[in-house]
Computed example of a mutant assay.
Amino acid sequence: MDKEAGRYRVLLAEDDPVSQAFLCAAIRASGGEPTACADGPTALARAREGHWQLLILDQHLPGLDGDALLAALHRDPARAAFPPALATTADPDSVRARLLRAGFAEVLPKPLALETLQAALRRHGCRPAALDDEDALRACGSAAAVEHLRRLFAEQELPRVQHEFDQHGDNHAALRPTLHRLRASCGFCGAAALAGAAATLHGALANHADGTRLDAALKAFAQALRDTRTALHAQLNGDGGDLS
C-alpha cells in the first residue's frame, strides 16, 4: 500500500478508451488509485518511474505488446523487482500458457466483467477501506464536523438509500438520482469505497451495460453499502476508534 497516498496504486495499460474508463472506475471502487496509459512505450516509462502495487497490461497495445513490456521491465537493471502483473486479452485460451510463462500472475479475459476484475484485485491485496478518516477530515476541517456528518449519514442518508433501492426494485434507471446524491454525501464522510461503487453502478446504468456487468455492479454496490453501514455503526458506537 502507498502509505503517503493511502491508496493501492495500479498502473493500467489499455488503449480502448471505453474499456480504460470502465477499468479505472472499477479499480477506484475497489480501493485502488489507477494511472492509465494508452500505449506500450508510455506504460513502460511510467512503470519504471513509479512505485506500483499492481500492473494491469493489455496484451495488444500500440507500440509494445503486454508481454514485451513485461519482459523489458524484468530486464531493467535499475529495478530489483516489480509488482505482480495481470494480462488482459480477448483470446485467453490460446495465449494463457505463454503469458504465464512470460511472468504474468494471471490472465484475465476481455471483455472483463466487474466482478472478475474486483476478485483479481482482492487476490492481490487491493481492498477498499469502508471509511477514510483523512479524506473526511480534509473535507470537513475538524473531527467534530466529521462525527456530526457521519452520524447524519448513518442515521438518515444510508437508510434512505436502502429504502429507495428496495422501493424501485428492478427499475434500476430510477436509481441514478439516488446514486448522484449519494456520491456527494460520501465525499464529506470519507466513504470512498461506497462512492466508487456508486460511481461504477451509475456508469453501468448510464451506459446501458449488459446484464452480467450490471448485476456485478449492483452486487458490488450492495456490499459497499453494507460495509459502510457496519463501519459507521462501529465507529459511532465507540467500537471502531476515533478521529483524534
Rank of each mutant, 00 (worst) to 15 (best):
E14R: 03
R46V: 02
L99A: 11
E157D: 03
A129K: 10
Q59M: 07
A224E: 14
A87P: 03
G238M: 07
E157A: 12
L158V: 05
T228D: 09
L86E: 08
P177S: 05
H172I: 00
P92S: 06
V161I: 14
A38H: 05
R213Y: 03
E49F: 01
L205K: 13
A26K: 06
D210H: 09
A13M: 12
N207D: 14
L225D: 10
T42A: 15
A80V: 02
L158I: 04
A197P: 15
E115Q: 13
A38W: 00
T42D: 14
F188M: 06
D39F: 02
A174M: 09
A113T: 00
F82V: 04
A90S: 15
G125N: 01
L108M: 09
T42H: 12
D239N: 08
R101N: 08
R96V: 02
L131I: 15
E134Q: 13
L201K: 06
L12A: 11
A119C: 03
A224C: 13
R138Y: 11
Q235G: 06
A113P: 00
G169C: 00
P159L: 05
C189P: 01
I27H: 08
G203R: 15
P34H: 07
A71G: 11
L114E: 00
A197D: 13
A144I: 03
G50H: 04
L114I: 07
H233V: 00
D215N: 13
L117F: 06
S185A: 15
E155N: 05
R46N: 01
A143E: 15
E115A: 14
T230K: 11
G32D: 04
L11M: 09
V10A: 13
G240D: 10
H74L: 12
G66L: 09
G31L: 11
R123W: 01
A209P: 06
A71Y: 07
R160E: 15
R28A: 13
D227H: 13
R150I: 02
Q235N: 02
E115L: 05
T230W: 06
T212A: 13
A139L: 01
L70K: 10
A204L: 10
L149V: 07
A154P: 01
E157R: 14
R229G: 12
G211C: 01
T230S: 10
C140Q: 15
D93A: 12
P17E: 07
F82A: 03
R127N: 04
G240P: 04
F153D: 04
L194A: 13
P77G: 07
E164Q: 14
L137K: 04
P62K: 06
D65L: 04
V18F: 09
C140N: 14
A184C: 07
L11G: 10
N237F: 08
R138G: 08
F188L: 09
E155A: 13
G32I: 02
A193S: 14
L236E: 09
C37L: 03
F82T: 03
F82Y: 15
Q118N: 09
L201N: 07
G211R: 14
P84I: 02
A139K: 07
G141F: 01
R176S: 11
L108N: 03
P17V: 04
D242A: 14
V107D: 11
S19R: 03
G31Y: 13
A90F: 02
